[in-house]
Amino acid sequence: MARRNRGPRLFRRPQSGVLAIVTTASAPLLRAEGIELSFGGVAALKSVSLDVQPGGITALIGPNGAGKTSLFNVISGFHKADAGRLIFDGTDFTNLATHKRAALGMARTFQNISLFPGMTVLDNIKLGAHTHLKTGVLAAGLFWGPARREETELRAQIEREIIDFLEIDHIRKTPVSMLPYGLQKRVELGRALAMRPKLLLLDEPVAGMNREETEDMARFILDLQEEWGVTVLLVEHDMSMVMDISDHVVVLNFGEKIAEGPPQEMQENPAVIEAYLGAAQDAA
């Protein structure tokens, strides 16, 4: 699944599309400094620092219980860090309310899918665009002029840029609870994309997928990064995928960062091998 042979591309998306974001800053897009988190005395994260460079794909790996998802939860505001600082695109958002982080330009998907099961695929994706819409209660109830225009534009844009891209046009009106797992994951990615993020946090995007679904997902992630300029930070256990698509790998173990660098280097890093083998031996 190397970059070269990721299948034929059906169409090229214009770089100037609404969702395309040009990032020119050389500073890290996301910076976490000395993040500490503990649950009732058990330390989940011990002074973890992390830089995510704009435009790249950064992978966060580590054995089970290493603190990867905890770090994600701190970044997206689900947990509050005990200490440390979070900076996004030059803005300190350590104490920002969870729902306001979306407006900064961060989107995330969950390890165990967290779509809105009662709604259709289309409505789920539309929800992603929530912070970009403006309709107020009165306009919404009357559905005249601006509200109708906004909704129609949103629909057209989602069809053009997300439904097409993720190849889910056949299920747009299906309630998500009726979809198979792989498609649900794709819809969740679509919802995150509708947020028009600068940074996409993907928590195990291919967990539980078969080979074909994994390859599809890897292709989508690469396309996203290349064509839309979205920066990606992902947690993944599928090592072959991590090694194939990421530019930079950060390794956590027992809540601490033990190494970081390019994928090839990490494969040969003794501390990383020790962490994985040690974990494997403990499990055996």
Partner: peptide, 15 residues
């Protein structure tokens, strides 16, 4: 509806 179905993902999305 998002709040009803899953309030924490609603928050992540910016609701």
């Amino acid at each position: 509806i998002a709040i009803r179905d899953s309030d924490y993902s609603a928050e992540i999305i910016g609701v």
